[in-house]
Design a binder for these strands. Structure first.
Lengths: 341, 341
DNA sequence: ATGAAAGCGCTAACAG
DNA sequence: CTGTTAGCGCTTTCAT
């Protein structure tokens, strides 16, 4: 079923069919002819061959999306969804490639996507971090949830400093002054860790609270890590014990809940907790539901695709910092009156 | 940078370049010429244009994947990963389209993918269910995590009956006889609900346990639903109260934990719990880690892609039932001795 | 208002 | 062993 078949059926040339169906220049074709063509096309169930069209027009209406482990984390989906929604609304398809964080696979993926003549490319990582731009990336490739070490590329990352500040401010506003930060283990790899810490310190400073180094602890970023870290914190003498805890992520917060329960501490009456990530199926399902900071994955995905499609300008030397909104639920309250502050 | 450029640089025809680079018929080309061509190609940084190649060969080495909400659920990723891995290993790219479960979007997606001349198509749903095959799907489309109401299509779904049986058997084996099934609300929409229930009843029957209707309850499939249902169950008079609970999913199991803790019941000492889904970031992070039944998403994704690529035969009238393995963690133990059974 | 014709970049017979 | 040639199905001037 080719265009020439439709043309024959309608008794016109392929040029006419092309103009009618693509809409371009269809104002030059008489209404009667247009109707005839459309009818013939519909009757034949004709669908244009985009490969042929792409070869001719040099545009595929296709966007390549390279990611390290998009499929593995629940977050991934939101970024993908944002990118996909924008692409769809503008008549583009996305070709997704997963590299499993393997350099060789990444190289091949870039080659394959370039060979496919994708109109633009998105380079996504699942965790906010700095990356060296891989060789062969087409100019204009948009970095998603990672910042290229050298400038010159559009990029979008979460504003983790602001997020850390928001979380801490939420606790300060509730009246807390002994606020712990249960951090991720390795600040080098995890950009987010350092930035959130900065936000935390900033708010303490602006609130006239002297940071207590004992309240900044590091642990594995899972529930077990969070639990262990919080148990240590709760072992501190009463005067130094925190009344509120800001956790690097929701899984650690989940562990914090367990630690509190083991001590018979009620949340938020005895201990306030704020998480990070607003991880679906965790944050809202905890008891009580967790106040946390959301990572704007969907929005970042949208933004990146908008830039890729040329719908939006970008600063190629400074990654866009996307706001991380605080999601208020029920794990924050005033400090217990027994706490001597 | 086209093939003719490479040909000119190497002093040969495009036919020769094509043969050398594609490997096909390269045994007819002298080693010297081959070397010259490869060198010229590498020097020029030549990458073949797959659009032109596809137009000529009528194969795009591209697979369309339509899904309702692949991006939204954490499960999705695993299916995608399985499909993607197989595609990659066989030199294919996957074009992903999300329809948000909207019929109109679905129609357009199918059209777009067909227009792109994808070599094969996967039709995925995020929850195991029966679906009417949408119009326009190319013959041979593989159904993933859903079964077409009319036969004639290859399909793969989780073996939920076996999963329900495995969960129940795990509890029976631990010595329980009063085993509740905390089910999803609507058996019509959720195929899995009915199948797991069947598996549950089967194992009770084969174990000589008379099902107590009071122990089969339904609730919303989130933590709040699970918690409410389990609280009711625990309100039963001691003689009828369950010593073990099989939950429709891990989120409900999370609610079951909360209900148990509220009563001061320890898991698994006072109450055993089995979930379903093996949901990352929940099942393993609960305290104690949850024994649950895993949904074989990754395997289903692989299987579907293998069938799509013609690497594997399939029965087009009976969906493949993929095994749901039980994942043993620490939420199952023998019934408490105080229980009068 | 419509048609003819020239490719887009590649592959695959078929010649030589 | 290598080159010539004829398209794949579409879009787009340029004629008419």
């Amino acid at each position: 079923m080719r265009m020439s078949d439709v043309a024959a059926a309608a008794g016109v040339s392929t040029a006419t069919v092309s103009m009618v169906l693509s809409g371009a220049g269809s104002d030059r074709i008489s209404p009667q002819t247009q109707a005839r063509v459309r009818e013939a096309a519909k009757a034949a169930g004709y669908a244009p061959n985009s490969v042929a069209r792409s070869l001719r027009t040099q545009r595929t209406r296709t966007i390549g999306l390279i990611s390290d482990t998009i499929a593995t984390t629940p977050f991934a989906g939101r970024m993908l969804a944002g990118a996909n929604d924008v692409a769809r609304d503008h008549g583009h398809l996305v070709i997704l490639v997963n590299t499993d964080d393997d350099a060789e696979q990444e190289r091949k993926a870039i080659l394959a996507l370039v060979g496919q003549q994708v109109d633009a490319m998105l380079y996504a990582r699942m965790w906010h971090r700095a990356v060296d731009a891989p060789a062969g990336l087409p100019a204009g490739t948009v970095f998603l949830d990672c910042r290229p070490t050298e400038g010159g590329w559009p990029a979008v990352v979460p504003d983790d400093r602001q997020g850390g500040a928001s979380a801490t401010r939420e606790l300060v506003a509730a009246g807390h002054r002994r606020i712990a930060y249960v951090d991720a283990p390795n600040p080098d790899e995890v950009v987010a860790s350092e930035l959130r810490h900065q936000g935390y310190l900033e708010v303490l400073a602006e609130s006239g609270i002297t940071p207590d180094p004992a309240l900044h602890v590091r642990a594995a970023t899972d529930a077990a890590g969070g639990r262990a870290a919080v148990e240590e914190l709760l072992d501190l003498p009463t005067s130094r014990r925190p009344t509120a805890i800001f956790c690097f992520n929701d899984r650690m917060a989940m562990g914090a809940y367990t630690a509190a329960h083991r001590r018979g501490l009620a949340i938020p009456d005895d201990l306030s907790i704020v998480g990070y990530d607003d991880q679906q199926l965790i944050a809202s399902e905890l008891d009580p539901p967790l106040t946390t900071v959301a990572l704007p994955h969907y929005e970042m995905g949208r933004w990146a695709m908008e830039v890729a499609l040329g719908l939006r300008e970008s600063d190629r030397d400074n990654p866009l910092l996307m706001n991380c909104p605080i999601i208020r639920r029920d794990s924050v309250g005033p400090p217990p009156i027994t706490a001597g502050n």
